[in-house]
Every structure is written in C-alpha cells, then in structure tokens.
Design a protein around this nucleic acid. Sequence first.
DNA 1: TTTTGAGTTGTTCGA
DNA 2: GTCGAACAACTCAAA
Length: 482
Amino acid sequence: MKRPSIVWFRKDLRLEDNAAFYTAAERDGPIIPLYIWAPEEERPWEPGGASRWWLHYSLESLSDELETLGYPLIIRAGPSLHVLEEVIKETRAEALFWNRLYEPEAIKRDTRIKSTLSSRGIDVQTFNASLLFEPWTIFNKQKKPFQVFTRFWQACLKQGEMTSPLPMPPHARGRAPSIKSLSPSELHLLPEVPWDQGISAIWRPGAHHARQRLDYFIEHALMDYKEQREFPGKHGVSYLSPYLHFGEISPRMIWHEVVREYPEESEERDAYLRQLGWREFAHHLLYHFPFTPTDPLRREFSHFPWHHDDKALKAWQTGYTGYPLVDAGMRQLWITGWMHNRLRMVVGSFLVKDLLLPWQEGAKWFWDTLVDADLANNTLGWQWVAGCGADAAPYFRIFNPVTQGEKFDGTGEYVRRWVPELAKLPDEWIQQPWDAPPDVLKQAEVEIGKTYPHPIVDHSVARKRALDALKEITGAKAFETP
DNA sequence: TTTTGAGTTGTTCGA
DNA sequence: GTCGAACAACTCAAA
C-alpha cells in the first residue's frame, strides 16, 4: 500500500469525470480530498457574494458525496501552498493531483506550487477536467490564437473525436489518516443579512442537481433551444452556467449526454453545443490575453471617453433606468443571482452605450451578483458588448431596449414578472410606458416619475452620443495585439 | 448574438 | 376612371 495522495479540489466540485480524483483512486493508496479557501489569491477577482453563497452549498454537497464513498473532505483556509505543505506533513502524502485552472492569477500560483512541491519529491500531476479544448492546443494558420468565434469553433470541431467522460471512481479501499477540517459554515460564505431568499428559491447547487438540470434540459428544452433560448420569459435555456463554473458538471459530460441522446447533427442540437464553444472561446481568450479582465483587447478603446456618474450607475444596478426590459434584467439578477443571456447583452449595451459608463463597472457588478460569475465568460461578455473585444462587429452594436423588448418579450411576460409596477400595462405599451396615452397609464395605475421612473436617457439621443464618442477613438491607434 | 434610415414597392383614398 | 399623396411594409446598405 502506497502513502496517501491529495486531491486538491478547486473549480471541479464533482466526482464523475474528474481526472485528478480518478487518477488518485486508481492509485493504490488512501486519498485525501482537500478544499482550500484562499480568496486573496484570486484578487481582485475573489468570489463575489452570490458565488460565495453557491460555494457554501457546493462544498456541503461535495462533502456528502465524498463521505458516502468513504473519502471525507478536508476543508482548510489558505494560503494554498502553506496548507498543502501542512497536509502533506500531517498525512505523509507523497502525491498531489489537481485539475487545471486558466485564470492568470491561478496559473501563476499553481505553477509556483507545482515546482516547489515537485522539487521536494512530491509527485505532482495536473489534468484537464474543465475544457473540451485547452487553450494551447488551438491556433490559426499563422500559429496565433483565434479572435473570431466562428473560425475558432470550426478549428475546435476539426480536432476529431471527443473522448468519453471518466466514470465515478470506486469506493475507498484504504483509510486516510484522520486530520482536522473546517466545516463549510466556518468559512462564513453565507450572507449575514438574508439577501439570499430569491437565490435559494430557485437554485440547488451540487453535482447531483447539475445532472438533473441537464437531463431535464435534454428531455424538455433542447429540441426547441435554437428559438426558445431567445425569449427570457420562457425556460428555453439549460441553466447550467453556475454548475459549469464550479465544475459540478463538465463540458465533456454535457457534450457526451447531448450527443448520446441526439447522435445526428441538427440545428437545434448544434446551436446548444455551440454555446459550449463560446465558453471554450472565453477561456481561450483569457489564457492568451490575460490582461483582458481589466483592459480592452482592442487597445484603442483605452482612450474611449467614458462618463463617470454614480447616480446613473446606481439606477442601472438597482433596475430603475425607466427602460422596462433593462430594469427587468437587472432585478432578475439582483433577486435570483442570474440573468438570461439576451438580457446580459441588453443591459450591458445600455450601461456602456446609452449611459457611456465603463464596461469594467458592469463586469464588477456582475462579478458580485451572479452565481455563475466566471472570469473568462464575464470578460468575454463585457468586452463583446462594449465592442472592444474579440468577435467585434464591423459596426458599433447599440441595442435598442424597446425593439429588443418587442422582439424577445413581445407579450411582456418577462417585464411583468420582474417589474410588477408595470404589470397592468397592455403589451403594446409595456416596453415603452412613457409613450402610452394618459388614459392607458391611468387604467394601469402607472404614473411615470412616481410609480415608475422617467427614462434615464432618451435612447435615440444616447445612441448618437455613443456614435460620436466612438468617433473620438477611431482616429486613435489602430487595432493591435501584443 | 444589431439598428437605423433610405429607398422601393404596393395599397388606399380622395380630388 | 385616373392620378398622386400618404402611408405601410419591406429590403438593403451603412454604421
């Protein structure tokens, strides 16, 4: 019997298709599953409020699952290297396995830890458990990273057969030495004031629930995905983003299940798989352009004449801009810790183009409020919407919140759900209550400026202002990548 | 994963 | 009955 191996869990809080855990279980010796809470190592992107909430329940769930297999989870507080050294000493572990992360700070830390511990004779091995295609495996013909999604995804799909997910490892054979552990509650991840009721009402963290969501999605929504995913009032999407972020399900498991259920190519199926592609693309970009969480990929945008307006920012954050669709999105986020992707584009465009506030402010707010806050995805999303990132359109995208409402929430059911003070307005006026005739407003018990705010800006004026602001930088230094 | 405005075509209606 | 204004509905290029 060998000495113990440590499996360092991070954003891979599952047992199935977990290469690090699987490798440890195949090895002949006890396993010490370890979680280290070290938020300062991720600064300035330490987990936000909603993420912490999720993490608390994920750790409880992971701990329960491990317990039934006979591997009690050890939870400690960082710094990571220090904790690893401690645990190695306490258990006489001789091997350490983990699944790789792709955020710049995590890469630096992990590289340092790997070389330090390897040099002391620990068998350190790392694995891919979070991506279908690791960033250093995909390049264009000039050997450079792709900056356009479609080409990137085509190149990925040409890589050939996707390998199958790894199974659940067997029950523990050896008994790990018993060492001290914190409980999830001792990490103080849950809020002290109970703002989490809306989140608790709809989310169930944990690998088991990720599975259920996936099965439900494949059975009920996948075949209508291409159309239905556009309607925020419907349940046309998979709701898997937070599970993917914390690794409670792997993209490979999703891919495999979807393809097993629908072996034939189809527009619906492939439209969904393509979304996994966007996640891959986001990680790819973050890896190759590690400055992008704070700085624009297109450098000329660092001269963009942003405004600074705390009042406007606050109105956006709290969902009081006077544009029903924008406000509905922001309130859904605040209450449930999640926002439909179409709304992420609409509210993002509104912050950046209509209010001319820097996209970094939006990214920060999302980081704190989203249960699926993910550095790669958040960065890609905000740079895309600001027009300063990859996959830039040849035009300056400015979403019209009224038109978007009419197209994607024509019946107003989404707005009515999240902006109840407008609920009684007829469909015709619900996306633009300021234009409704006085008797209609009266009938609906809406008083603009009292029960619901005046529009914070006039969209058509704001649109022109944004185009003018863009002109100020288009003369600036041309597009370049470092 | 867009919007706008200009231009075109088609329809209605009244002089 | 014919003509043109007005407008709706649509396409398309440009941003």
